[in-house]
């Protein structure tokens, strides 16, 4: 493999796994493996009796699809009154990443 090809491969690899997560609260991330939950909003009050979740999945940092909106998660859980919002983040080597919005309410 020529130097140019090697650099290009590294560049593409770096590019491919450059997916990121941003949120108001981000616990320490693991670059090899992450699997954690953290709050997204609405910390006070009760939790409610229902739970709904909805996810965005990113593969190789190149393609990502999904619905991690609060609306989507509430609809999935049949929630009309949102009491609390958390999220889950899963990452394996940047190759597979999943962001799940979790809504609690009634």
């Amino acid at each position: 493999m020529s130097k140019t090809a090697a650099l290009l491969a590294v560049f593409l690899l770096t590019l491919g796994v450059g997916g990121c997560v941003a949120a108001p609260v981000v616990p320490p991330l693991g670059m090899v493996y992450s699997d954690f939950d953290a709050p997204l909003g609405l910390g006070g009050g009760e939790v409610g009796s229902r739970r709904g979740e909805s996810s965005v999945v990113a593969v190789l940092g190149l393609v990502s699809t999904g619905d991690a909106s609060v609306r989507g998660a509430a609809r999935a859980g049949g929630i009309t009154e949102v009491k609390r919002v958390d999220y889950e983040f899963y990452n394996f080597l940047g190759l597979y990443q999943r962001f799940t919005t979790v809504v609690y309410g009634d």
Binding site: G19, A58, L62, S64, D67, V82
Partner: peptide, 22 residues
């Protein structure tokens, strides 16, 4: 405020702008 992992080649994702409404 919230950005799920994106794809450079193709993305179609939704996320909240606010998480304060009920």
């Amino acid at each position: 405020p919230v950005i799920p992992p994106q794809g450079l080649l193709y993305s179609d994702i939704k996320a909240p702008v606010t998480a304060g409404g009920t």
